[in-house]
Design a protein around this nucleic acid. Structure first.
Lengths: 148, 148
DNA sequence: CTATATTAGTTTGATATTTAATGATTCGAT
DNA sequence: ATCGAATCATTAAATATCAAACTAATATAG
């Protein structure tokens, strides 16, 4: 017995918009990260490498915040990147609670090599929208993301 | 040594829009699903219950498709829902490859109880946008999601 | 100064998630 | 009628993910 949702129009509209938002995000993400499999990188690992590539050495908690992840999760992801020799952990001498993450030479070369394809994938994924529509989408998403 | 990204304007704009899209999706999702912790439900478990609640009994592969997940993942999530007595697996007699998922009475009561709060959370999350902006956002996301 | 609070990182325990391989079943084309 | 392709579900192995509890280090209030 299917139970159709009989909320108000506002509620039905919000549900519909929400589903579209999540699907758009996940569809574009899946498509643009598909090429990462070739390099045996997960999306999370790519996120860490990209963060360090563009922002330079950062402590784990900061990388976690930028990637919307917990510090516990960051421990695991960094463990796996470290095993592969793509990042290095450096304990800070000023404040010994902090561990600064650095790209190794191998990590730097890898992210430098794959980042352009990532950007091209995004450009292709967003090409169904005009520049103006993309700008509009960004503005609306920014409002949503800043909330809470 | 931070490496600023020096792509074309198009590339920089796409990257910026993409980050906002993902953040919007994850921010709204996290906020609206926070109350699930009270019921010891994960987001994925909620997704399955909600799908069955609104569409009626479905086979696992169908539920997986609607939630953008793999069938292997669905096996795990359903295992955990079944352990708690919230769903039942029924092997189809017509085509014995299929397993139809049914909400149990307990599962039905649970999703019926928590769904309104879920919708209210979404309404609140989206309230930073006008109805027209939400409609616009949905339209743009739909285009993105349909691609690939 | 000392007690308390806060912050960074880890560990543990549980669930999620994917890919690849496998078994069971059905479909389809010859 | 049968062989091969396709589909559904499961398993295995690896990684991800979070909350909660914990350690270590620093900051702050009294």
């Amino acid at each position: 017995m299917p139970i159709a949702f009989h909320g108000s129009k506002t509620e039905r509209d919000v549900l519909s918009t929400y589903v579209k938002l999540v699907r758009a995000s996940e569809t574009v993400t899946a498509a643009t990260h598909r090429h990462l499999a070739d390099k045996k990188l997960t999306i999370s690992q790519f996120g860490v490498l990209e963060t360090l590539y563009h922002l330079g050495p950062l402590c784990q908690a900061e990388v976690a915040r930028k990637n919307l992840k917990s510090t516990a999760n960051m421990t695991t992801v960094v463990d796996n990147l470290e095993k592969r020799g793509l990042v290095e952990r450096v304990r800070s001498s000023e404040d010994r609670r902090y561990i600064t993450l650095h790209l190794t030479e191998a990590g730097f070369q890898l992210i430098k090599e794959i980042f352009p394809a990532h950007v091209q994938g995004l450009v292709k994924g967003f090409s169904v929208l005009t520049a103006e529509e993309q700008q509009q989408l960004g503005m609306l998403c920014k409002k949503l993301g800043m909330n809470q």
